[in-house]
Design a protein around this nucleic acid. Structure first.
Length: 230
DNA sequence: TGCCAGGCCGGGT
DNA sequence: ACCCGGCATGGC
């Protein structure tokens, strides 16, 4: 049963990869750019996040020292395009303060922390929830944590592979308990799901002929998914 | 033009 | 344990 589910997930992944090709996530070239982007993209279009990050880059504010020292008013002004700028300013400050308080401002030192412990610590920061924490761990820290977002929930519940009301951990377990904990796989898989959500699956087309996952309609439904998820 | 985007928090049931 | 309003800009 578990093997069957594993093969189905790999087939889904392969179909997406064949369709979209490699996506090269995370679109950012430094650890701090990724971590900042993870906060700024909360419920926000990535295009707007790019504008905010460009502002921070131009002002050389993507280093931990600079982020630590920058005035909140100035930071808020620069990240304005990404929306929720007041609350996100606080969240970025909470994150950078955490790295200084616990790891002397060194992200390398932070990622030497045992991953499970680090995840709990990240979740204790105000403004860092499960998706942001897992994005930081996976994309900035190269730790095998599967990232679950709204696209993941929508797409996989529509295909009846997870319950409609599954919570974050249940969805994450659905993937990470049925896949090898491979950083590259987790990285690309989540990117592919988001790409599918942003393009083809955007409008819940019931019979979309170009959807790379259309083969799922022909798959035999796994009858005891509920047991696997719970 | 109104709706939505790669969430999360806090207060109320 | 859920449920919901608030947070805010830019693109279609």
């Amino acid at each position: 049963m578990k093997k069957q589910l594993q093969n189905l997930l790999l087939k889904i992944y392969q179909s997406l990869y064949d369709y979209f090709g490699p996506l090269h996530w995370w679109p950012g070239d430094s650890t701090w750019e990724i971590m900042v982007g993870a906060v700024l993209t909360q419920n926000t279009n990535w295009n707007n996040v790019v504008k905010a990050i460009q502002n921070l880059k131009r002002e050389n504010l993507l280093s931990p020292d600079a982020l630590y020292k920058v005035e909140e008013n100035r930071l808020a002004d620069l990240i304005k395009p990404s929306g929720y700028y007041n609350i996100k300013t606080k969240r970025l400050k909470n994150l950078v303060n955490f790295v200084f308080d616990e790891y002397q401002g060194s992200e390398d030192l932070m990622f030497k922390e045992e991953s499970g412990i680090l995840r709990e610590k990240l979740l204790s920061i105000k403004g860092i929830g499960p998706e942001t924490a897992d994005s930081i761990l996976l994309y900035a820290g190269n730790k095998p944590f599967f990232v679950v977002d709204s696209y993941t929930r929508r797409i996989f519940s529509r295909h009846k592979l997870i319950p409609k009301k599954a919570n974050y951990k249940q969805i994450q377990d659905f993937f990470s308990l049925n896949l090898e904990p491979d950083v590259s796989l987790f990285n690309e898989f989540h990117a592919q799901i988001v790409m599918l959500g942003k393009t083809i699956c955007k409008n819940n087309q019931p019979n979309c002929v170009i959807c790379p996952l259309k083969f799922l309609k022909k798959e035999k439904r796994l009858n005891n998914i509920n047991v696997l998820i719970r």
